[in-house]
């Protein structure tokens, strides 16, 4: 049976992993290659690396890290941040990434998803949506690290993204991010109901119970988290045991 996935997320700035709270007050945590190896050994199912700087020279540092990670670990990983063109996608895939996550650039140029899916395959194009609740049960898509409201409805955008060829959607709740009060259940569920591609929940994980809630049938296929893993608040093997105890199918023989 297809297992639910646990995905540690690493924000990379100038070659180092950082974690922000509500995208601000970023502080340094660790070396990306070392932390990737650690998560791989602990049984993470995938990893995500976000390049949060992305000036041109730093871009090359980042590609170098992607290649080093690919050499060290034998699980899939996604790269996001600063992906604007087909060449950007080509470069990270050639460096050893399996998927690319597109966010602001896709909002500005939705056809980028279509062109990318056609050239590289639907399976490696991940649409990442930063959504903020603007009134009860209504979410808008925000871009530029959650700073700019696009006034586009998040659920409509998810459906459009699937049609354009995205193979997976990351649903990141700006409201829940960094708060550790749990994933945004309603938002994630609404988007999961609206599309027929895998859904990755993001933002808000603080306890094992939060993972249990969001990984129920017909909600999220995978759960992404950063600080609870980086700061050793939750260990991946213990989390997988807890999920298995709640009859959630997880991979436990890495």
């Amino acid at each position: 049976m297809l297992a639910k996935r646990i995905i540690p997320c690493l924000d990379v700035d100038q070659g180092r992993v950082v974690k922000g709270k509500k995208f601000k007050n970023i502080q340094d945590v660790a070396d990306p290659v070392e932390i990737a190896k650690r998560y791989n050994n602990e049984g993470a199912d995938e990893l995500v690396f976000y390049d949060i700087t992305a000036s041109n020279e730093e871009r090359n540092i980042f590609l170098d890290i992607v290649e080093k990670v690919a050499a060290e670990i034998a699980i899939p990983f996604t790269v996001g941040g600063g992906i604007r063109t087909l060449d950007d996608i080509h470069n990270v895939l050639r460096a050893g990434a399996d998927k690319v996550s597109i966010n602001s650039s896709a909002v500005k140029d939705p056809q980028l998803i279509k062109r990318a899916a056609k050239r590289f395959g639907t399976q490696c194009i991940v649409l990442s949506i930063d959504a903020k609740e603007i009134e009860s049960n209504k979410w808008n898509v925000f871009i530029h690290g959650g700073r700019k409201n696009t006034y586009r409805d998040a659920i409509d955008w998810a459906m459009a993204g699937e049609k354009l060829g995205a193979g997976e959607i990351v649903v990141n709740s700006i409201d829940a991010d960094g708060e550790k009060n749990g994933y945004h259940y309603n938002l994630t569920k609404k988007i999961a109901d609206a599309v027929n591609i895998p859904i990755v929940a993001s933002g808000g994980a603080g306890s094992m119970e939060h993972f249990v809630q969001i990984l129920q049938p017909n909600i999220a296929d995978a759960a992404l988290a950063a600080s609870v893993f980086h700061y050793d608040e939750i260990s991946i093997p213990a989390l997988k045991d807890a999920l298995a105890n709640q009859n959630i199918v997880v991979r436990r023989n890495p």
């Binding site: 297809l2 297992a3 996935r5 199912d45 027929n196 296929d221």
Partner: peptide, 13 residues
């Protein structure tokens, strides 16, 4: 078959 999510993505036995 569209009765399941497509693509089939993740770890399976």
């Amino acid at each position: 078959n569209n009765c399941v999510k497509v693509p089939h993505m993740g770890w399976n036995t």
